[in-house]
């Protein structure tokens, strides 16, 4: 996402940025612009999603890109597929005001951009959404995990990691390996040493 190329204007781009030419590159691009601020994210399979600027700020990756001035055109996210991005955008919308990331925004705030963005406690509704959000199968969960990691979105990362940790609860070592598709690279001696230390965990 380091690409500075904002790409050709898309038909889906709803908000034009007339002041863009006069801005210094260090300033947030949309600062001071009136109305609803929206950017467009483009998945690897060419699907485009519209997302509120403030929601997109939940992702550190997107925030950096926006601050670098890449928010003018559709923002290409080649390693995310359409379905994944759709889910992620939905989560961003529901997590608006989530203290998990809003705190961070307040700290890094520049020029009062997020002054109206007071952190709220996640409501029961949001929690219910989170539960629903991760009730997917293993592969889908991993896709979301990788998306969370790529986007560096704390809320998304928390939800998905929590789900992954829940998934391996009470699994045996072999089951965990199978679940995560990992290869056992211990030598028999090393495994014996581990078993000796935590025999109870292998029962």
């Amino acid at each position: 996402m380091s690409s500075g190329d904002s790409g050709p204007s898309s038909s889906k781009q709803l908000v034009q940025q007339p002041a863009a030419a006069g801005r210094s590159p260090n300033q947030p691009p949309l600062l001071g612009a009136g109305g609803r601020k929206v950017i467009v994210l483009k998945s690897g399979d060419e699907e485009e999603f519209e997302v509120d600027l403030l929601d997109a700020m939940q992702s550190r990756t997107l925030r950096r890109a926006i601050e670098d001035g890449c928010g003018d055109g559709p923002m290409p996210l080649p390693n995310l597929t359409g379905p994944v991005l759709a889910k992620v955008v939905e989560l961003f919308r529901r997590h608006r005001g989530d203290p998990r990331w809003a705190d961070e925004l307040q700290e890094t705030e520049k020029e009062g951009m997020f002054k109206d963005y007071a952190p709220q406690k996640p409501t029961a509704e949001v929690k219910g959404f989170d539960r629903e959000f991760v009730s997917v199968d293993r592969d889908a969960l991993f896709d979301l995990l990788r998306a969370a990691n790529f986007l560096e979105a704390p809320g998304l990362l928390d939800v998905t990691c929590d789900a992954a940790a829940d998934a391996v609860m009470n699994m045996t070592v072999e089951e965990v390996r199978e679940y995560f598709g990992l290869v056992n690279d211990y030598t028999p001696e090393e495994e014996a040493a581990l078993r000796k230390q935590h025999e109870w965990a292998f029962q």
């Binding site: 391996v168 699994m171 290869v183 581990l194 109870w200």
Partner: peptide, 11 residues
Amino acid sequence: RDRCSCAAVSR
């Protein structure tokens, strides 16, 4: 127990 199981998965 879960922590130990995960630790035993790979190096």
